[in-house]
Design a protein around this nucleic acid. Sequence first.
DNA 1: GCGACAG
DNA 2: ATCTTGTCGC
Length: 223
Amino acid sequence: MRFDRLHSWPKTASAAIRIQERLAGDLEFSQITSEPELIAGVDCAFSRDESRTIAGVVVWRRRERGICETRVAQARCTFPYIPGLLSFRELPAVLSALSALRNVPDVVLCDAQGLAHPRAMGLACHLGLWLNLPTIGCAKSRLCGEFDEPGPRRGQSSPLLLKGRQVGVVLRTRDRVKPLFVSPGHRCDIESATRLTLEAAVRYRLPEPTRLAHQLVTQARNE
DNA sequence: GCGACAG
DNA sequence: ATCTTGTCGC
């Protein structure tokens, strides 16, 4: 799969923030009506010496609930981890892995935030704009926003609010298990993000695509 | 200034 | 993210 370069890579945190502020205006939020056939999941790990980012992509067939294609790629770390600027650290490797894909997914799930970000530009939003594909942020913990603990059962959720505006949901994907922080990336809305995440989280806390991508990069790291 | 802080 | 073993609960 191919896509054009969205912007040059920043060297400093302030330059990265300026890019986020400019990109935020290009986001589109709409309902995903058609049932996606292929759902991709991306995740990253780091080489033991922390010099390289290892990214993995798993394209998952929604109906068969099986793996369609997997890709792994690495890239040298050129940006440090700074809360709020995660995409500048991980996207180089993620984009490399995605560019090797033969099957173009209908939507991409990310192990990170989407709209639930201080400047409305979590990794899922950034990736969605770069690929011009629908993306969803499925983070394991909170970056920002306020919320009440959702009910204990799978499927129960509570709104995630930022400055009084709902930016996502805190969603329980398994009974009595720590909830996920779900928010739309690009070309998606809160309701669609919630529905697809729950649909892809068939047996574990994490949706299958990102869970499998995590296994993929963990294995790649140990060899 | 202090605390919070995706992966 | 990563460093790490056993252990409690469904």
